[in-house]
Lab assay of single mutants.
Amino acid sequence: SSGGSSILDRAVIEHNLLSASKLYNNITFEELGALLEIPAAKAEKIASQMITEGRMNGFIDQIDGIVHFETR
């Protein structure tokens, strides 16, 4: 797709992000992006959206560029 990722790509990214949230206590956007094979800024945006929508527990430290995952 030309304008970003398809629905399937997005679903795969979100699935992998949720998997990462179970493996890590926290991770930088750079590391997360590398893990998900997407730019760091996109990793931040998707993580932020999932947390806001209540689909993933955690919070974002924008100063240090880190996602902190919280286990249920």
Rank of each mutant, 00 (worst) to 15 (best):
S1G: 13
S2I: 11
S2Q: 12
S2M: 08
S2Y: 01
G3N: 12
G3H: 12
G3I: 10
G3K: 10
G4S: 12
G4K: 12
G4T: 12
G4D: 13
G4F: 02
S5N: 12
S5L: 07
S5I: 12
S6E: 15
S6F: 04
S6N: 11
S6M: 10
S6Q: 11
S6H: 14
I7T: 10
I7S: 12
I7M: 13
I7E: 13
I7R: 10
L8K: 13
L8T: 11
L8V: 13
L8S: 13
L8M: 13
L8Q: 11
L8P: 14
L8F: 12
D9A: 05
D9G: 06
R10P: 09
R10G: 07
R10S: 09
R10E: 12
R10H: 11
R10K: 09
R10Q: 14
R10M: 15
A11Y: 09
A11W: 11
A11E: 13
A11Q: 12
A11L: 12
V12C: 14
V12D: 08
V12M: 11
V12S: 12
V12H: 10
I13K: 04
I13S: 03
I13Q: 05
I13N: 04
E14A: 04
E14K: 03
E14C: 05
E14P: 01
E14V: 06
E14N: 03
H15F: 12
H15V: 08
H15P: 04
H15W: 06
H15Q: 15
H15I: 12
H15M: 15
N16Y: 10
N16A: 13
N16P: 03
N16G: 12
N16E: 09
N16W: 12
L17H: 02
L17T: 01
L18E: 05
L18K: 07
L18T: 06
L18Y: 05
L18H: 06
L18N: 05
L18W: 04
S19F: 09
S19T: 14
S19C: 15
S19A: 15
S19Q: 15
S19V: 15
A20H: 06
A20Q: 06
A20F: 14
A20S: 05
A20E: 04
A20K: 06
A20N: 04
S21F: 03
S21N: 03
S21R: 02
S21W: 02
S21T: 06
K22A: 08
K22T: 08
K22Y: 08
K22S: 06
K22V: 08
L23F: 09
L23D: 07
L23C: 14
L23I: 14
Y24P: 03
Y24H: 08
N25W: 08
N25Y: 12
N25K: 15
N26S: 15
I27K: 04
I27W: 05
I27P: 02
I27N: 00
T28A: 04
T28S: 11
T28P: 04
T28F: 03
T28R: 04
F29A: 02
F29I: 08
F29M: 06
F29H: 00
F29L: 10
E30T: 09
E30K: 09
E31H: 08
E31N: 07
E31Y: 06
E31W: 06
E31P: 00
E31K: 09
L32Q: 00
L32G: 01
L32P: 00
G33D: 00
G33Y: 01
A34Q: 11
A34N: 11
A34G: 06
A34K: 14
A34M: 11
L35F: 09
L35T: 03
L36K: 00
L36W: 04
L36I: 03
L36E: 00
L36T: 01
L36Q: 01
L36M: 05
E37M: 13
E37R: 13
E37P: 01
I38V: 08
I38R: 00
I38K: 00
I38F: 01
I38T: 02
I38P: 00
P39C: 06
P39N: 08
P39G: 09
P39F: 04
P39W: 03
A40P: 12
A40H: 04
A40N: 04
A40S: 07
A40V: 08
A40Q: 05
A41M: 08
A41V: 10
A41C: 08
A41T: 09
K42M: 15
K42G: 07
K42F: 15
K42Y: 15
K42R: 14
K42D: 15
A43G: 02
A43S: 03
A43P: 00
A43E: 00
E44W: 08
E44N: 07
E44Q: 14
E44M: 14
E44P: 01
K45L: 14
K45Q: 15
K45S: 12
K45V: 10
K45H: 11
K45P: 02
K45C: 13
K45G: 07
I46G: 00
I46S: 02
I46Q: 00
I46H: 04
I46C: 04
I46Y: 08
A47F: 05
A47S: 05
A47D: 00
A47T: 10
S48A: 13
S48G: 09
S48Y: 08
S48D: 08
S48M: 11
S48C: 13
S48P: 00
S48E: 10
Q49I: 08
Q49E: 15
Q49S: 08
Q49V: 08
Q49T: 07
Q49R: 09
Q49K: 07
M50Y: 02
M50W: 03
M50C: 04
M50Q: 00
M50F: 04
I51W: 02
I51S: 00
I51M: 06
I51K: 01
I51Y: 01
I51T: 01
I51P: 00
T52Q: 14
T52V: 12
T52K: 15
T52M: 12
T52H: 11
E53Y: 01
E53P: 00
E53I: 05
E53S: 08
E53F: 02
G54L: 04
R55K: 10
R55W: 05
R55A: 05
M56E: 01
M56L: 15
M56C: 03
N57L: 10
N57T: 11
N57A: 13
N57E: 10
N57S: 13
G58Q: 01
G58V: 03
G58P: 00
G58S: 02
G58M: 03
F59H: 11
F59I: 08
F59G: 03
F59A: 06
F59D: 04
F59Y: 14
F59V: 08
F59R: 12
F59E: 05
I60W: 03
I60H: 01
D61F: 06
D61W: 05
D61Y: 06
Q62E: 10
Q62S: 12
Q62G: 09
Q62K: 14
Q62A: 10
Q62I: 14
Q62P: 14
I63P: 06
I63W: 07
I63V: 13
I63Q: 11
D64E: 15
D64Y: 14
D64G: 15
G65N: 06
G65S: 06
G65V: 03
G65K: 10
I66V: 14
I66C: 07
I66T: 11
I66W: 05
V67H: 01
V67G: 01
V67M: 09
V67A: 03
V67N: 01
H68C: 07
H68E: 05
H68G: 04
H68I: 09
H68L: 05
F69Q: 02
F69Y: 02
F69E: 01
F69P: 01
F69K: 01
F69A: 01
E70V: 09
E70K: 07
E70C: 13
E70G: 12
E70P: 07
E70I: 09
T71Q: 12
T71S: 11
T71W: 08
T71E: 11
T71V: 09
T71C: 10
T71Y: 07
R72V: 12
R72S: 14
R72E: 11
